[in-house]
Design a protein around this nucleic acid. Structure first.
Ligand SMILES: [Zn+2]
Ligand SMILES: [Zn+2]
Ligand SMILES: [Zn+2]
Ligand SMILES: [Zn+2]
Lengths: 158, 158
DNA sequence: AATAGGATGAAAATGGATTTCATTTTCGTC
DNA sequence: GACGAAAATGAAATCCATTTTCATCCTATT
C-alpha cells in the first residue's frame, strides 16, 4: 500500500492530532477508514462502514475498523448509539451539535431532536440528587408519519 | 416437584391472567421465578435472578429464566434496561410509576427520577415531528455524591 | 538498515442471549 | 384415572456483535 497522507478537513486534522497526542501513528488503514467515515451521513454500523471501506481497500480487516471506530469515538469525531436493534450505530459528532433521537419503531427512521428546556431540566434533576451530570442519553420511540399511514391502511383492510 | 399454586399478590394475579389470556400455563418453574422476581428490589440481571431462583429450586435452567423474564416484561410486570454495563438489568414495573434513571458512572448507583415537564416536552417534540410517541428512554450519567468525594480525595493524593 | 514499539488481519475467543431438541408436564377430553 | 396434543423444560449447542490473540508487518527514529 502506498498512500499519501493528506487529510485536509477540520475533522481529519482532529484525528491526526489525536493520534499524535497519544503516540499513535497514521496508517493507510486508519486513513481510509477515517476518510470513509467522514463521507458517511446518518447512522451506520461497524459492518456497514467495513463494507464501504472495503470497496476502496478490500484487504482492510474488520478488527481494524472496530479499533479505529473506537479511536474516532475517543477523539470526539464519532458517537456510538444503541438504538436497541442489536448493533451499535455510529454517527458524526464533530460539527454536530448535541442532539437526541426520535426513532420510528417500525421503519427505524431517525430524527435528531434537541430541546433546550429538557437539557436544562436534566441538569436540575442531577443537581437535585447531588450528582454531577456528565452526559445523558434520551431516545424517543414512536411511529413516524409514513408508518402511521401504513398502519391505518392495514387496519382498514383487516 | 409438587407445588401448590397460590400466588396472592396483585402482581402475581396479573401474571397468572397474562398466562391464561395467552394460552400459557402456570408451571412450578414459572411460579418460583415469578415469586423470586417479586421479592427482589432494585435492578438485577437475568444471571442474578437465576442464582436467587436456584437457591430455592436448583434445577431451574437459565433458559427458563430468560424465557420467563420475557413473559414478565410482556405482561407488564418487569422492565428491562440497558445501562451500558453489558447485561440487561430488570426492575419491577407494576406499582412503579414511570421513571427515568440517574446513574453513577463510577459505582453504578442508580436514582430513579421523573420530571413532568421533561415528559411533556418529549410529547411535544414527537408531535412536532409528526411522530406518535409510544415510549422513551432517558438516562442521565454522572458522579454520585460519594464518588465525587472519593475522586476529590484521589486527586488530592496525587 | 537496524531497531523497538505499534498496527494489522485471520482466526479464535468471548459472553449474553437465544435456539434446538429430546424429554417432561400440563390440561382438556375420554 | 388414563390419553394425547400442545406446551414447557433443561442441557447443550448456537448465535452474533465485539474483542482478543498472535504471528507478521509497518512506522518512526536513530
Ligand atoms: Zn439531550
Ligand atoms: Zn416509520
Ligand atoms: Zn421519562
Ligand atoms: Zn458513585
Amino acid at each position: 500500500m502506498d498512500f499519501i497522507f493528506v487529510m485536509t478537513s477540520e475533522a481529519a486534522k482532529i484525528f491526526v492530532d489525536y493520534l499524535a497526542g497519544n503516540g499513535l501513528s497514521m496508517t493507510p488503514q486508519r486513513k481510509v477508514i477515517v476518510e470513509t467515515f467522514l463521507e458517511t451521513k446518518g447512522h451506520f454500523s461497524a459492518e456497514e462502514l467495513l463494507a464501504l471501506v472495503q470497496k476502496t481497500v478490500p484487504e482492510v480487516g474488520q478488527a481494524t475498523v472496530y479499533r479505529t471506530l473506537k479511536l474516532l469515538v475517543d477523539s470526539g469525531l464519532a458517537e456510538s448509539h444503541d438504538f436497541g436493534c442489536g448493533v451499535a450505530l455510529y454517527e458524526h459528532s464533530y460539527g454536530h451539535e448535541h442532539h437526541d433521537h426520535l426513532v420510528c419503531t417500525r421503519c427505524q427512521k431517525k430524527v435528531e431532536v434537541v430541546d433546550e428546556s429538557i437539557e436544562k431540566r436534566q441538569e436540575i434533576l442531577a443537581r437535585k440528587n447531588g450528582y454531577v451530570l456528565t452526559n445523558h442519553r434520551m431516545m424517543l420511540f414512536g411511529l413516524c408519519p409514513a408508518c402511521q399511514k401504513l398502519r391505518d391502511k392495514e387496519e382498514a383492510e383487516s
